[in-house]
Simulated scan of single mutants.
Amino acid sequence: MTQAPTRAQQLLGELAPKMVQLTDGVLFGDVWKREELSPRDRSLITVAVLAATYRPDQLNSHLRLALENGLSQEELVEALTHVAFYAGWPSGMGARGQLKAIIGEGTE
Rank of each mutant, 00 (worst) to 15 (best):
M1L: 10
T2W: 12
T2S: 13
Q3R: 15
Q3E: 15
P5D: 04
R7W: 11
R7M: 12
A8V: 05
Q9N: 10
L12S: 02
G13R: 10
L15N: 12
L15M: 13
L15K: 15
P17Q: 12
Q21K: 14
L22C: 11
D24L: 07
D24I: 11
D24Y: 06
G25W: 12
V26R: 07
F28W: 12
G29K: 11
K33D: 03
E35I: 08
E35W: 04
E35G: 12
E35V: 08
E36G: 13
E36F: 10
L37N: 06
L37R: 05
L37F: 10
S38Q: 02
P39V: 07
R40T: 01
D41V: 07
S43W: 05
S43M: 08
L44G: 10
T46P: 01
T46K: 01
T46I: 01
V47G: 03
V47W: 02
V47Y: 04
A48V: 08
V49L: 07
V49I: 14
L50D: 06
L50N: 07
A51L: 03
A51P: 01
A51F: 00
A52H: 05
P56L: 02
P56H: 04
D57E: 14
L59N: 02
H62V: 04
H62F: 11
H62A: 08
L63R: 00
L65K: 15
A66S: 03
A66H: 09
S72I: 07
E75R: 01
E75M: 04
E75K: 02
L76Q: 06
V77I: 13
V77W: 05
A79M: 12
L80K: 03
L80A: 06
H82E: 05
H82C: 02
V83F: 03
V83S: 02
V83C: 10
A84E: 00
Y86D: 10
Y86L: 13
A87T: 00
G88Q: 00
G88E: 09
G88D: 08
P90V: 06
S91I: 04
G92R: 03
A95F: 07
L99K: 06
A101G: 11
I103A: 06
I103R: 07
I103Y: 04
E105L: 11
T107I: 14
